[in-house]
Amino acid sequence: MKIRNPQSGEKNELNMTSMIDIVFLLLIFFVMTFKIVEMEGDFSVKMPLAGSSNSTVDPTELPLKLRLRSDDTGTLVGMELNDIQMGNGPEAFDKLRGTIIGQIGSSAPVAEEAGEGPEVEIDTDYNLRYEYVIRAITAVSGYKDGDQVVKLIEKIKFAKPRR
């Protein structure tokens, strides 16, 4: 006997409208909240109040004093490391790094534990833009050798602000 199936030719289709609505809402949410993440890192420095430090200063170590001078607009006009002029252009920071390598005696990575080794005191004019201070800290902290970071000086402190 032949069974007649009246629904045989019809397709069962789901109603996609509500799903597409939600999917678009999600998409709009993610597009609106999307922000390209900029990688950030830290220069970690231990700066106790002057006089409260328990560490003893090695008298044989030459104190490193970095003086940064600025004009009224906050632009770097001069940089001196222990009275050695570094200049003020982009090459000044390379010269500073080279001098630091010469001062601490070796271009090899600092082998001591963090907190040991030479210290540099940064004495900057009040108006100098912070960007230059970070560039100076970068120059004295180390340099990149390929993908590896070679550390130079890890102890950094600020002198009293010059008003």
Binding site: T124, D125, Y126, N127, L128, Y130, E131, F158, A159, R162
Partner: peptide, 15 residues
């Protein structure tokens, strides 16, 4: 710190 802020301001904050 903002890159253009005065270094003295950062020093004051540290102090």
């Amino acid at each position: 710190g903002h890159k253009d802020c005065a270094a003295g301001e950062i020093q004051e904050v540290v102090r």
